[in-house]
Amino acid sequence: MTTLRLRPEDPADIGPVRMVLAAAFARPDAAVPGEVALVDELRDSDAWIPELAMVAEYGGEVVGYALLSRVFVQSDDVRAPALALGPVAVAPHRQRVGHGTAAVQAGLDAATELGERLVVVLGDPAYYRRFGFVRADRMGLTSPWSGLGEPWQALALPPTTSGEGPPPRGEVVFPAPWSRV
């Protein structure tokens, strides 16, 4: 029986991850989807956290991907670390069987283990609600995508120590690669 294997991306996965992203985000108006370039640029930036680039492998083939990368929440003079989820992609021939959900959950679990407190995402509320995401404005978070309403979402991860306060509030500042998507 073939099982799904979830693990952090390794260098040998770069090509297969690009193929999954290109197939999942293919648009007739773009030769290479912006999500491919986004991941490539994030890999070469300070926003990259290797343990949070999750690959879903099925039968030895990379079929899914979920990336969590570093962003910051700016409030007055405080700059707190947070994570952005995305892109999330599944190869078209393996969609709708749970591979994307599994990759996202593995990434969120790994982020929690690393002591991260907050994740933001821009995406389908019906999909991300299953992980506990809520409208980001309800958590006091703004961004260039705040005007989109429901798709701009956030998730407070469970604290790893009892002394941790609430997640940060303020303007979510994305690294430069995000401005080109």
Rank of each mutant, 00 (worst) to 15 (best):
T3C: 09
P8T: 08
A12P: 00
V17Y: 13
R18T: 14
A22G: 12
A23Y: 04
A24M: 08
A24V: 05
A26Q: 13
A26I: 09
A26H: 15
R27D: 12
D29M: 08
A30F: 06
V32T: 15
P33N: 12
E41P: 04
D44S: 14
S45A: 03
A47Y: 06
A47K: 13
E51Y: 03
E51Q: 15
A53G: 06
A53F: 10
A53E: 14
A53R: 00
G59C: 07
V62H: 00
Y65F: 15
A66K: 06
L67A: 13
L67Y: 09
D77Q: 10
V78P: 01
R79P: 00
P81N: 03
V88P: 03
V90E: 00
V90N: 01
V90S: 04
P92N: 11
H93G: 10
R94D: 04
Q95T: 10
R96T: 07
V97W: 07
G98H: 05
G100P: 04
G100D: 01
G100R: 03
A102L: 06
A102V: 08
A103L: 11
V104Q: 01
V104F: 05
Q105R: 15
Q105S: 10
G107V: 07
G107E: 02
E113I: 00
E113M: 13
D124S: 01
P125W: 09
A126D: 14
Y128N: 02
Y128P: 01
R129S: 11
R129N: 02
R129E: 12
R129T: 07
G132M: 02
V134G: 09
R135E: 15
A136D: 12
A136I: 09
M139N: 11
S146K: 07
W152L: 10
L155T: 04
L157G: 00
P159W: 05
T160I: 14
S162H: 08
P167W: 02
P168L: 02
P168D: 01
R169K: 13
G170R: 08
V172E: 02
V173H: 00
W178P: 01
S179L: 11
